[in-house]
Amino acid sequence: MSNDAQEPTRLTYGEDPSQWVDRYDPTGESRGTVVVIHGGFWQAMYAADLGSRLAADLAARGWTALNVEYRRVGNGGGFPATFDDIHAAINLVDGEGPVVTLGHSAGGHLATWAAARQRFDEWSGGVEVTHVLSQAGVLDLTSAYDENLGGGAVQSLMGVGPDDPAFDLADPMRHVPLDVPVWCLHAPDDTSVPISQSSDYVQAATEAGATAELIEVTGGHFDLIDTRTKAWQQVVDLLDTIDA
Results as ranks from 00 to 15, higher is better:
Ala212Asp: 12
Ile215Val: 15
Glu96Pro: 14
Leu178Arg: 07
Gly103Trp: 00
Arg117His: 09
Pro98Arg: 02
Thr33Tyr: 03
Gly137Trp: 01
Val127His: 04
Asn91Met: 04
Pro162Met: 12
Glu96Met: 00
Thr191Met: 14
Asp168Glu: 15
Asn3Gln: 14
Met1Thr: 09
Ser143Val: 05
Phe120Arg: 09
Leu58Pro: 09
Ser192Val: 13
Val21Asp: 06
Asp140Pro: 02
Val132Ala: 10
Pro188Lys: 03
Glu147Tyr: 00
Gly219Asn: 05
Val160Gln: 07
Ala81Tyr: 05
Ala59Met: 06
Gly159Ile: 05
Thr33Arg: 04
Tyr70Ile: 05
Thr112Arg: 08
Thr241Met: 04
Ser2His: 12
Val73Gln: 11
Arg61Cys: 03
Asp168Thr: 11
Asp171Thr: 07
Ser196Ile: 05
Ser2Gly: 14
Leu224Gln: 10
Arg119Asn: 11
Gly151Cys: 03
Ala204Asp: 07
Tyr24Ile: 06
Val235Lys: 02
Thr82Met: 10
Trp42Asp: 09
Gly95Cys: 05
Gly28Thr: 13
Ala60Ser: 15
Phe41Glu: 00
Asn91Phe: 04
Ala48Asp: 12
Gly28Phe: 04
Asp16Ser: 14
His131Val: 03
Gly76Gln: 11
Gly51Pro: 08
His221Leu: 10
Tyr24Ala: 02
Glu207Phe: 00
Thr33Ser: 14
Pro194Lys: 13
Pro80Cys: 07
Asn3Arg: 12
Arg72Thr: 07
Thr82Asp: 10
Ser30Asn: 07
Asp240Glu: 15
Glu207Trp: 01
Thr12His: 11
His131Cys: 01
Thr206Cys: 10
Asp223Asn: 13
Gln203Thr: 15
Ile215Met: 12
Glu207Asn: 14
Val68Gly: 04
Ser2Glu: 13
Trp20Val: 01
Gly62Cys: 08
Val138Asn: 05
Asn3Ser: 15
Phe83Ser: 09
Gly161Ser: 07
Met45Tyr: 01
Ala60Asn: 14
Pro181Ser: 05
Gln135Glu: 13
Asp49Leu: 01
Asp121Ser: 15
Glu29Met: 00
Gly39His: 05
Thr142Asn: 00
Val73Ala: 10
Leu224Asn: 01
Ala89Ile: 06
Gly14Gln: 11
Met158Thr: 10
His186Arg: 07
Gly159Ser: 12
Ser196Asp: 14
Thr241Cys: 01
Leu141Trp: 02
Ala89Cys: 11
Val132Met: 05
Pro17Thr: 06
Ile195His: 11
Val99His: 10
His109Pro: 00
Val35Asn: 02
Arg10Leu: 15
Gly125Phe: 06
Thr82Ala: 11
Ala244Thr: 09
Leu238Gln: 15
Ala44Leu: 00
His221Ile: 08
Cys184Thr: 09
Trp232Tyr: 15
Ser198Met: 08
Gln6Cys: 06
His38Gly: 13
Asp94Pro: 04
Gly32Tyr: 04
Gly39Gln: 09
Ser2Phe: 13
His175Asn: 12
Gln155Ala: 14
Thr206Phe: 08
Ala65Gly: 07
Asp237Val: 01
Arg72Asp: 05
Cys184Gly: 06
Arg117Ile: 01
Gly76Cys: 07
Ala44Arg: 13
Gly126Pro: 06
Asp171His: 08
Leu185Val: 06
Thr27Gln: 14
Ser198Gly: 15
Ala204Val: 08
Asn67Thr: 05
Pro181Ala: 10
Met45Trp: 00
Glu96Ile: 00
Thr211Glu: 15
Leu66Phe: 13
